[in-house]
């Protein structure tokens, strides 16, 4: 049942990506092209998503735990540190180059197009390489231990 629900929630997420236009790299890149043919749509996607999530979270967190699970698993690291900022800066560069973010690319994979597949292959390689590097660093005495990504 939990698995079926996760599938349905993923379906809703993917539908949101497709309806909002965020699976379209040209539309994403035009949001960032303030000096060109600016398309403000991405701001409306974020506004709609954050508004619903903020309201929903307020309601949900009034109960102590999720319907199927022991506890709400929320990120606990409050630090604004170098890995956060450097990693986010890098993510923005890649997003600007390709026009895909992870959530935007996966529903487009289902259309059978080649472009999201090429991006996704690079994404998976980058994720695996960086996760290996993090694991190696945290296993090294004196190395920088990094919290695993939660979001």
């Amino acid at each position: 049942m939990q698995i079926l629900l996760a599938f349905i929630f993923g379906l809703i997420f993917g539908l949101g990506i497709l309806i909002s236009g965020m699976g379209n790299p040209a539309k994403v890149m035009n949001f960032f092209d303030l000096a060109g043919h600016w398309d403000p749509s991405l701001a409306f996607v974020m506004a709609g998503a954050v508004a619903v999530t903020t309201a929903g979270y307020q309601f949900i967190f009034q109960s102590g735990k999720p319907l199927a699970g022991e506890a709400f698993l929320l990120p606990t690291n409050p630090r604004i540190d170098a890995p956060l900022l450097a990693g986010s800066a890098l993510f923005g560069i890649g997003w600007g180059i390709a026009g895909f973010c992870p959530g935007g690319a996966i529903p487009m994979l289902g259309t059978g197009r080649l472009e999201p597949l090429i991006f996704f292959a690079g994404l998976a390689a980058g994720l695996i390489a960086a996760r290996n590097a993090q694991a190696a660093a945290s296993a090294t005495p004196g190395g920088t231990a990094l919290a695993p990504p939660r979001s």
Binding site: L84, L85, L90, F91, G94, W95, A98, G122, G126, R131
Partner: peptide, 20 residues
């Protein structure tokens, strides 16, 4: 697209998250 994907993958890992 491929290079952008690799850069995004490394960035979101160290940045602990993406747009969502």
């Amino acid at each position: 697209l491929a290079a952008g994907g690799v850069i995004v993958g490394i960035g979101v890992t160290y940045g602990s998250g993406c747009t969502s």
